[in-house]
Design a protein around this nucleic acid. Structure first.
Lengths: 323, 323
DNA sequence: CGGCATCATTGGATCGATCAAGTTGCGGAT
DNA sequence: ATCCGCAACTTGATCGATCCAATGATGCCG
């Protein structure tokens, strides 16, 4: 198992180092015959490019970074994990590898960017959990670091590429499903106003109700996410309510407990929903991850479109026993 | 934002490159006064070591790799995700970064090792999901690649360091808890024989029953993991059964459905257990991850103990409504 | 006061790839 | 016959760190 470098291959194939490099990076400039000879040498020796050496010369590492959330391992934490799985697969296919990092808050995360960029020459980032006034995107944009966000830039202009799931459409479809089943008094159990995602999910429900000519007064309840808080809040709905659309599976679980017999639909289609037969809105996470990676590689390989791209993916309703 | 290299720092501090390198890597050989001057220059310039350059010279990357499971996003998939979170935290603390990869099977995974080692100079691996006749450990050992497994080497001798959770102790504690509550006819709902983990979990239950002088004949049922399969299998228990210890939360969920009113205890303390109030055995995943990282850094920094280390961590019982 | 060991620091070579500039060979136009 | 252009390939320099051998400074002793 001697060390196999580009020089070893060159010697074996009877050419210079540069020609081997050309075969690898710009095959079209090498004569077909020579190219094959070099390729044969590469495979017979089991040669692989040393990324560190390449990186030092080119300044590119073929590495992208994603944050993995530290705590928050509740019911909903798994959503980001599923996204991460999809991203790792997509990155591998595109010839990139994924590096993980954790960060306590936005400032900490920005400090980590700095470290990853200077120490490891990271090529790009995929950000999750975007929110109002997010300082991360502007920091990266100011330094011309390629990045894509999973989640739209709430409140900010669309200056970068992003992929998001159409939350409105999700609750809209869920509400329509309930309307079709004959429900008229349908409540919405969501989060306090201010989170873009939560507000969008409420909007979809309201739109479906209004379109059906129904009054929504007193049918919307807001509470911090959680099973217990959801159960408590669900008690505040009017007695004649027959169905509830929820902003998360946690809340839906609470609603199920507080309002037995009523129709309930959750959001995110987590393992819990699957396990207990909860109807839920499912986000196409694997596809979202693949799209993010695709947009990012476009940026990285320089064939980026002149303008940034925004993608809104439709979620789907997974109908189970609870609705 | 000019590029800051070791030469920039050297110039600013009025010393040579090598002295700066010494301050970073072997501070004790530099005179205190010089050391401080160099350190001041480093911070004022915001200098950070270029890992690619360091790596090329030293052959070490300060990178470790962990496999992320592709599919299997059921209830139990989250266990490995939680381990991954813990590992990322621990690695960051130890000055390492985590790189992800996926693999379809053991052979594919070994091919990935080869690629990661030659292309990225990975320093070490943390393996999960060890099993009987695992070819990965011997491949790595044959090449002197540092690695630690989360999961013992089932059936093979303890030639490498590993961390595992004491599965026997988990079901033993669960069963004792039920015995204390007055139950006498306690069943075990587990997986088919052959998986080390599953067999160990059955052993713990059997040991507690035998110690209490109880007969276990006909009280053990084996089935492939899943909620539905668990529910179906739970129907095969004798009618006088009052409690069930399960090898997973999925099975426990099935048991709860098939045997309403009976006491049920699951395993892994997943989000589902938390959400529906299922009593479950909880694995100390964050601690396991930290221990793995600790063992691995010992190997990497050359201060490895002469013999390999094995750690068996005790799980804990999280008592909720179902038992 | 010269000799010599010890400590602190320096300068050149090196890791393995790519970049930039140069060389060779060959056909076609002048 | 000479020159030009182009394709195909080669050579030396370079990225930013660390290794290694050598140098200068300092102190101690006979």
């Amino acid at each position: 198992m001697e060390k196999v470098t580009i020089a070893t291959v060159a010697e074996r194939a009877g050419v210079s180092r540069q020609t081997v490099s050309n075969v690898i990076n710009t095959p079209e400039v090498v004569r077909a015959e020579t190219r094959e000879r070099v390729r044969a040498a590469i495979t017979s020796l089991g040669y692989r490019v040393n990324q560190a050496a390449r990186q030092m010369r080119t300044g590119r590492s073929r590495l992208i970074a994603v944050r993995i959330e530290s705590g928050s391992d509740g019911i909903n934490g798994s959503v980001l994990d599923r996204f991460l799985h999809g991203l790792t697969d997509a990155a591998t296919l595109a010839g990139y590898r994924v590096m993980l990092y954790t960060a306590a808050d936005d400032a900490d995360e920005i400090a980590t960017y700095d470290d990853l960029l200077t120490a490891h020459d990271l090529d790009g980032f995929v950000l999750t959990s975007t929110h109002h006034g997010d300082p991360r995107t502007s920091w990266l944009a100011a330094r011309d670091v390629p990045f894509v966000t999973f989640g739209r830039p709430w409140g900010a202009p669309d200056t970068h590429s992003w992929v998001d799931v159409d939350n409105d459409a999700g609750t809209l479809a869920a509400t329509k499903h309930l309307l079709k089943a004959g429900h008229r008094r349908i409540g919405f159990l969501g989060w306090p106003r201010g989170s873009g995602v939560g507000d969008a999910r409420r909007t979809g429900w309201a739109a479906a109700m209004t379109a059906a000519g129904l009054d929504v007064t007193g049918l919307s309840v807001a509470v911090i996410d959680g099973v217990d808080s959801g159960a408590e809040a669900a008690g505040r709905f009017p007695d004649d309510l027959t169905a509830v659309v929820c902003a998360s599976d946690s809340l839906a679980l609470g609603a199920l407990r507080a309002l037995p017999g009523r129709a309930v639909i959750g959001f995110d289609d987590t393992a819990v929903a699957h396990a207990i037969g909860l109807t839920s809105v499912s986000q196409p996470l694997a596809e979202a991850a693949a799209r993010c990676m695709h947009l990012l590689t476009e940026l990285l390989d320089g064939r980026a479109p002149a303008t940034s791209t925004q993608l809104l993916l439709p979620p789907s309703l997974v109908v189970r026993q609870t609705a």
